[in-house]
Design a protein around this nucleic acid. Structure first.
Lengths: 370, 370
DNA sequence: AAGGAAATCCAAAGCGCTTTGAATTTTGGG
DNA sequence: CCCAAAATTCAAAGCGCTTTGGATTTCCTT
């Protein structure tokens, strides 16, 4: 039971506002006070601040200066009420047994937060079983608590996209679906290209037997990475054997088991691609355990999301990687989402980031005779 | 530059509200409409909904029924403006090179979100270098964008607590600091007890040489876990050798290296405690690599935060663990935080959760003669 | 120098909710 | 049956911002 407030302390100010302003450690100035201070109307000040054109340049400058001096910050709740915008972005966090509430998510989130906090944007974090993602999205939008949505963990023919397009809520997708028109706003990295480049490098180094330790097979990025790999191999007259492909959560353990399995094959691979440095961790372990020398007996390239806690250069044998910062992607998406909200123009923007291929010690020429 | 709206579509409703209400797929009912519908004043309806006592029981029921029928949901922005409460909770996310924006954080966050979304609470996620945490907290509170703070990653004599106590913003700490009065609201698990229990079990099984693979040495939970271990050993006339203690980020790699190092000692430990299943992953790997048999040659107990992606029962040799769900902690803290905000009573509540000690196959009697 | 367009600026009306201060109805004791 | 106290209910005043619809001024054209 909420209890009633006593007399609102704010009322006591009424008598001698000036006095109290000194005491109450700069109790936030509000628009009214600011405009009085400037001898302008609230309208004009508001417009000056929000970049409307019908304000004299000089006046605007005066306002801006005053803002700096007084430390004025508009009350977000009031803005939200007046504009009808919620000032926050929603994100559905997949979460269930065996589903990746993983390292990668945290890193990405840090990027989002980084940017959002600069603009006083909030988050509504809505954990959801992957099965119910569509419903959760819809509910989130309907709640009116968010004015933009962030989507990730795209699948093939992901139903969320079509659904979101019917609503008028802006959204940005991290990744791209497959098999649906790509006319929605997204930010993705060139997964196909990354693994194409990586595989090609290894092929050029003479490797003929490849393996791929990938993410879950239902996620779009996994599919693309495989495609890139296959394509590069094809160009060298090589194929990727199905028994040399692993699809699973990107944990160390899965990396380990996959590699272990590969090494027991009749003709084990000498070149391995990993979808994450986390997977690589396990794979390298298996390689060591088998007594093989990374970079000599077997080459490995991993995709590096630039997780601060797992740096490829710190591996015993530094890892060759395709690199793209997950955090940077988070920042960028937050920026776009916020821009969308503020301008109200949902330009279906698409961005595809190239990855860097960074050669370190884990890659070398194919061992002779293999 | 924000562009001006056209004529507000909402205005068109004015003429024939009834008509449009049918079209605009149940455009949210607001308090005014609801009260008219009931033939009551907004005041009364508002009070009925917020649990104020001066409302007739029958009237309240009528209101509640109407809410159910109309699907009325108060506009949060308006509430925030009227009450001055922000309806959101702030969290400072430590993030820097080598700092754990780790798995554990994501899991905890899922718990927070789970609960918060039920009450329409938002988050303000503020990444910050650990060095600047105090300043970030202060700024976050000053921004007026949050009305409660969540703190984690407690250190010894953590300065944030004293700071927060001077502010009037409610907060809940996940964990407990050390060396400062514990008169603040916290939720912690009994780390000392957990590791005491674990170490005692191993001692009872005849183990005499112990090792501890712990989290960062500056974090309170690490300190407590070590203390619990030492205490249990002392009761059995044993000591924990300094060279058998590892403090580091809780990654697989650190677990591996630590274990590797231990096994090279003159007298290697036969009993190992790990602060996380993630660490255990690495440790187990090192054990296998050394050709030792887990549960026979060497026993291991890990603390299990119940990460969905790393279940102790799925290890090759299922892990004996001390268990406490991180996600449950997140939920509980969110609940408390929200309660604090709504009732405005900052009762300095303390909770200390006991952990479960679950015996699986990774523990066994000390090998003979060791 | 007059008239109209363009440039600026303003008063006031909300946005949807909470809370105050007072009115109205019930209830209970004498 | 009357009156004060208790129980209910209400009208109206904000909360701080945005936006509409004018008002006022300035600047050009002819």
């Amino acid at each position: 039971m909420p209890k009633r407030f006593g007399t609102d302390p704010g009322n006591e100010e009424k008598g001698h506002p000036k006095r109290f302003e000194c005491f109450k450690k700069a109790k936030h100035v509000n628009l009214k006070q600011l405009s009085q201070l400037l001898g302008l109307s609230q309208t004009t000040v508001s417009r000056a601040l929000n970049g409307y054109p019908e304000v004299n340049a000089e006046t605007r400058q005066r306002v801006l200066d005053a803002v700096r001096e007084t430390g004025y910050r508009p009350n977000r709740a009031a803005q939200r009420l007046a504009t009808g915008r919620a000032g926050s972005i929603g994100l559905v966090m997949p979460t269930a047994d065996g589903i990746e509430s993983d390292v990668h998510f945290g890193e990405f989130l840090a990027g989002l937060g980084d940017e959002a906090v600069k603009h006083d944007f909030h988050f509504v974090i809505n954990p959801s079983h992957p099965e119910e993602e569509v419903a959760t999205c819809r509910r989130l939008v309907a709640s009116g608590n968010v004015d933009a949505l962030f989507l990730a963990y795209m699948r093939e023919k992901d139903p969320r996209i079509a659904m979101l397009k019917t609503l008028k809520t802006p959204f940005v997708v991290h990744g791209r679906s497959i098999g649906v028109p790509t006319d929605y706003p997204y930010l993705d990295i060139d997964n196909t290209g990354a693994f194409y480049d990586a595989a090609r490098l290894l092929a050029q180094l003479g490797h003929r037997h490849f393996a791929l330790i990938n993410g879950p097979d239902y996620l779009a990025f996994s599919i693309r990475r495989k495609k890139g790999t296959v394509r590069a191999l094809a160009e060298h007259g090589l194929t990727l054997r199905e028994e040399c492909v692993q699809h699973s959560q990107m944990t160390d353990e899965h990396g380990f088991r996959a590699m272990e399995r590969f090494l027991q094959l009749e003709t084990p691979p000498t070149a391995v691609l990993c979808s994450s440095t986390v997977l690589a961790l396990g794979a390298v372990r298996a390689i060591n355990q088998a007594g093989l020398k990374l970079g000599t007996d077997i080459s490995l390239i991993a995709h590096d999301d630039v997780l601060p806690m797992l740096k490829p250069e710190n591996f015993m044998v530094p890892l060759t990687t395709t690199r793209s910062s997950l955090r940077a992607a988070g920042q960028r998406i937050a920026r776009r989402l916020i821009a969308d909200i503020l301008t109200l123009e949902t330009l279906p923007q698409q961005e595809l980031w190239k990855t860097d291929l960074i050669v370190r010690a884990s890659t070398g020429p194919a061992p002779a005779g293999k």
